[in-house]
Amino acid sequence: MNGRVNLMNFNIDLIIQSFPLLILGAGITVQITAISVGLGLVIGMFVGIARICRVTPLRWLAAVYIDFLRGTPLLVQIFLIYFALPIILNQRVDPFIAAITACGINSGAYIAEIFRAGIQAIDKGQMEAGRSLGMTWVQTMRYIIVPQAFKNIIPPLGNEFIALLKDSSLVSVIGFEELTRRGQLIIARTYGSMEIWLSVAIIYLIMTLAISRLVAYMEKRLKTS
């Protein structure tokens, strides 16, 4: 061998041995992504609506929220929540809570913009029809505008889910053991950089492809209904 590094050194056994651990990590990645997008969806809906409501301070607050979270790196936001927030709270923040909070409020800002665009794409005659029937602005939003907007925003929402699934790898820096962090830990033990990073990349790819197919399917079904 003479210490030469070539593809012949590729250690399939290492991949097979590490696979269960990596899959567990992938499960956690999916979990924090799903919880974060769920959180982001709730935040995004309210912030997105606030962004276009008639109450000026609310509109202004929503704009600040969106600008701040889209204008600063997610990594820095994770540090802020995991390292800076405990100083204010005088209490340690659990890595899982820190991870979903950071990812959730971050995706909330992006989803808010998706919602705003989705709502503004609805014909303004819909709001007029609702209001002319005596419904309040909130009722019309709730029963007429938002349900229609939801249908329109499924494709961009799918993209946001995929983006967050990849960005969730950033929470590995606070030691939270999702897919990327698991990979790092296995490499620290086995030095199998090539095998493990390749496996990690392929697992991410399989997950993102699966999600984009799922979104395409949902889009098609909604279109026909």
Binding site: D123, L133, P147, Q148
Partner: peptide
């Protein structure tokens, strides 16, 4: 005050029956 629009402005995500019953139920 009932209003009828040039472009109808029915709610496309609801059935005809739901279109008609929504406001009486909610308002």
């Amino acid at each position: 005050i009932g209003m009828v629009f040039q472009r109808f402005n029915l709610f496309p995500h609801m059935t005809v029956l739901q279109n008609i019953t929504l406001a009486p139920r909610k308002v």
